[in-house]
């Protein structure tokens, strides 16, 4: 078949999907986490509807969608943070390295060390910079002595890109740092307990553009070691930092795909409408 005939034989199939099942590529080979048929209820209200998705190793996956779409609710399923919300019920199968995170033998404290979380507003403990980072390794027994603890703190602060700025004032309160520094301190705190996955719930929404850029650079570096799931309202941020993007809409996972593809050629009408600002 000649080149012209091939082009002519292609059928114009660019009709965007409109059904509510997930389109794209939610599953990956050798995933870090698997989520199957996940539903979340707040009382009688269903907030997440039958979501199926994998979290890959060493990827940044961005979760986007309008307010109330369920992206933060779903994020909190990944380390059972929803357990702390009264009336919230999670069903389905969520696994970390094959381990059912809802198994009755699973203790949420070590689970949340393996699946760490960074919140929208930096929330350092009212303790020194050193103690903020050392707290986790201490309670998880990761350091045998002071020298080991010092090393973990230094390594974590270096990975979080904060060491050079705070190495001479480790005893000062973490709350005295700038907003961007506080957020990097929280990231160092999450890193200190050797997580496999880091969940970030709008980590830059309280930061200025420079501090945001530093966090985004940091996310790109952290990807070498961890899986990162980031919820963001900034589509530019999702496009800049992630390899895959997942779009949620009214509790449904509508589309998952490589970020460059989702932002140039989305497959679902709802994704197209949301990212181009035509939704609403």
């Amino acid at each position: 078949m000649s080149g012209k005939e091939e082009i002519l034989s292609e059928v114009t199939t660019k009709a965007l999907h409109k059904e509510r099942e997930t389109v794209g590529s939610p599953f990956v080979e050798n995933p870090r986490m698997t989520c199957r048929e996940v539903n979340v209820y707040y009382g009688d209200k269903k907030a997440i509807n039958n979501v199926n998705i994998d979290i890959a190793r060493n990827e940044v996956i961005a979760m986007i969608g309008p307010s109330g779409c369920g992206k933060s609710t779903f994020l909190r399923c990944l380390n059972r943070m929803n357990d702390t919300i009264e009336g919230c019920r999670v069903t389905g199968d969520l696994r970390l390295d094959g381990m059912d995170i809802h198994d009755k033998n699973v203790d949420v404290v070590p689970l949340r060390a393996r699946v760490g979380m960074v919140f929208q507003k930096p929330n350092p403990f009212p303790k020194s910079i050193f103690d903020n980072v050392a707290y986790g390794p201490k309670i998880h027994g990761l350091a045998q002595n002071k020298a080991e603890l010092d090393e973990i703190v230094e390594r974590s602060l270096k990975k979080a890109g904060l060491w050079d700025e705070v190495k001479d004032r480790l005893t000062q309160p973490g709350t005295g740092l700038s907003g961007g520094q506080q957020q990097r301190l929280c990231i160092a705190r999450a890193i200190a307990v050797s997580p496999e996955v880091i969940l970030m719930d709008e980590p830059c929404s309280a930061l200025d553009p420079i501090a945001t850029a530093r966090i985004e650079e940091l996310i790109a570096e952290l990807r070498q070691h961890y899986s990162i799931v980031i919820v963001t309202h900034s589509m530019q941020q999702a496009a800049r930092v992630s390899q895959r993007t997942a779009y949620f809409h009214l509790g449904d996972l509508i589309e998952v795909g490589m970020t460059d593809r989702v932002f140039t050629n989305p497959r679902h009408q709802l994704t197209e409408d949301y990212i181009t600002g035509r939704f609403g």
Partner: peptide, 9 residues
Amino acid sequence: HQPVASDLR
């Protein structure tokens, strides 16, 4: 406006 998707195209 940093357009995306069909607007970018």
